[in-house]
Amino acid sequence: MWWVGFETVTWTGETEPTWYETFEGEAKRGFCPTCGSRVAAIDSDIPEIGINVTALDDTSGADLLPIHASFKDNAVRWLPSVPETEHSTAG
């Protein structure tokens, strides 16, 4: 997955994600109420909301370039691979 962090988010559309606490008091994940796709994450130790970039309408911004990939060996073939870069301080 390819995530980007935002300090604030304004949800558009009919509803916002359905939230489930995945680790009590530590993390919750937001899922599309229609299809069940994971679209967002909130972790108690990170002051941003993480949004799965594939859930965004426009991913063309220069500030949305990936800087780190987790689980690269398990990446789906149809998404472009993330080039090797220095590790970010987040995740």
Rank of each mutant, 00 (worst) to 15 (best):
R29Y: 02
R29V: 01
R29Q: 02
R29M: 04
G30V: 03
G30R: 02
F31Q: 02
F31M: 03
F31S: 02
C32G: 00
P33C: 07
P33A: 06
P33K: 05
P33W: 06
P33H: 04
T34W: 10
C35T: 02
C35D: 02
C35Y: 04
C35H: 06
G36N: 03
S37P: 00
S37V: 01
S37T: 01
S37K: 06
R38W: 02
R38G: 01
V39T: 05
V39W: 02
V39K: 02
A40K: 03
A40G: 07
A40R: 04
A41P: 00
A41E: 08
I42A: 12
I42G: 05
I42S: 11
I42N: 11
D43A: 14
D43R: 13
D43K: 13
D43N: 09
D45C: 05
D45Y: 12
D45H: 11
I46K: 15
I46D: 14
P47D: 11
E48T: 10
I49P: 01
I49V: 14
G50F: 08
G50W: 08
G50S: 13
N52G: 01
N52P: 00
N52E: 06
N52Y: 06
V53L: 14
T54V: 08
T54S: 14
T54F: 14
T54D: 13
A55G: 03
A55F: 03
A55K: 06
A55I: 04
L56G: 04
L56W: 10
L56C: 06
D57T: 05
D58I: 05
D58S: 05
T59Y: 12
T59Q: 15
T59E: 12
S60L: 07
G61A: 15
A62P: 00
A62F: 08
D63K: 07
D63M: 04
D63C: 04
D63Q: 08
L64Q: 09
L64K: 06
L64W: 09
L65E: 11
L65V: 03
L65I: 05
L65N: 04
I67A: 14
I67H: 14
I67E: 15
H68A: 05
H68Y: 12
A69H: 13
S70D: 08
F71T: 01
F71W: 13
F71P: 00
D73L: 11
D73W: 12
N74G: 07
N74V: 02
A75C: 03
A75T: 03
V76L: 15
V76H: 15
W78C: 08
L79D: 08
P80L: 13
P80N: 14
P80M: 14
S81R: 12
V82H: 14
V82E: 14
V82K: 15
P83E: 15
P83F: 11
P83V: 03
P83Q: 14
